[in-house]
Design a protein around this nucleic acid. Structure first.
Length: 329
DNA sequence: AAACGGACCAACCGCTCACAG
DNA sequence: ACTGTGAGCGGTTGGTCCGTT
């Protein structure tokens, strides 16, 4: 019901994303923000399904993504969270700013799982393997979930959920129930985090956000968990900072070479993390206008003929990148 | 140098849920 | 209440890399 596989439409491309596709998607999203994913491919001139675009953005293009190896702290946090939440990667990812659920899932499956096994710990139960064997015949509830009796011990994730009262506040049940019934639950841990990569508060209060942008040049411009751009040095921006993946390598190659060959062209998509963000910081409003203009001339995909106001959810984050242009026009 | 296999990771698939009409 | 649609999630797959034989 309601499920349309991307494969049903044979025109649609599949597989790895080309730098050109990345560029189109990145340009589109930074310009108009995240709205209706199903309309993104058409509007951005991509032969992909919306689902694929969404995934590409979330897992790779989002500017707030952290790159590179997981730190020891992150590693421990993932293990703790997995013990509490099981394979709820999206929920785990919420606690690790700049990391995606996919990334964490892959890291878990390829690395952490084996590490725990090596240490004699069952990655499913987070208990010593010998103990797990004894319990294997016992009926189980949810996998990875400690029973309420077992949860007499404190559940402490990132020093946030610790409960000094001795109650079972830190139990997985509590953790999940609270999240289920309290929509603001996550904000207790991490203000305004939005898994889409946008600042949630922005979605509900445009004026405040706008003020934030105007008053604080170091704000994230709608993206959360942005790296400290004030200290960002484009000269030290290595290709390894960008990604290690296959297309990523291509992208990185292009980024490095194009940046060298065409350093005057600030609209170079792959240099966005450096040049453009610095421009943003220096003068946000100028940047918005400037960036917009450059994109216009640079990429030339014709949105004006394709966009109509009803095909896009009036949008929230779009004005950050497009405050000078009425999208519906 | 070639073949092989494991590790890694990006992307896909299928499912569920939320919501609008 | 029902149906259609889109978003999001978790499991899985397939391609690439890299070390070993």
């Amino acid at each position: 019901m309601g499920h349309h596989s991307c494969t049903e439409k044979e025109k649609l491309r599949k597989g790895l994303w080309s730098p050109d596709e990345d560029e189109k998607l990145y340009t589109f999203i930074t310009r108009f923000g995240v709205g209706c994913w199903s309309s993104v491919p058409k509007l951005a001139g991509l032969q992909r399904c919306g689902k694929s675009c969404r995934l590409r953005w979330i897992n790779y293009l989002r500017p707030d993504l952290k790159r590179g190896m997981f730190s020891q702290e992150e590693e421990e946090l993932i293990i703790n969270l997995h013990e509490a939440l099981g394979n709820r990667w999206a929920q785990i990812a919420v606690q690790l700013p700049g990391r995606t659920d996919n990334e964490i899932k892959n890291f878990w499956n390829s690395c952490l799982k084996k590490k725990l096994i090596k240490q004699g710990i069952d990655p499913n139960t987070h208990k010593p393997v010998s103990e797990t064997r004894e319990q294997i015949l016992q009926p189980k509830g949810l996998p990875n979930m400690a029973t309420s009796d077992e949860m007499g011990q404190e559940f402490c994730v990132n020093n946030i959920i610790c409960n000094n009262s001795g109650q079972k506040e830190g139990s997985r049940e509590h953790f999940m129930n609270k999240q289920e019934y309290d929509p603001l639950f996550l904000s207790e841990f991490q203000e305004s985090f939005d898994p889409n990569g946008y600042n949630s508060t922005f979605l509900t209060d445009h004026d405040d956000q706008k003020n934030q942008i105007e008053e604080n040049p170091n704000s994230n411009y709608g993206f959360n968990s942005m790296p400290d751009l004030a200290n960002f040095d484009p000269g030290n921006f290595m290709d390894t900072d960008f990604s290690h993946g296959s297309t990523s390598r291509i992208s990185s190659y292009l980024m490095n070479n194009e940046a060298k060959e065409n350093s005057s062209n600030s609209s170079n998509f792959y240099s966005h993390a450096g040049i453009q963000t610095n421009n943003m910081l220096a003068n946000p409003e100028t940047f918005l206008w400037d960036f917009d203009k450059k994109l216009e001339s640079m990429f030339q995909f014709q949105i004006k003929n394709e966009v109509n106001s009803s095909s896009w959810q009036e949008g929230s984050s779009s004005y950050i990148f497009n405050n000078s242009e009425d999208f519906s026009n």
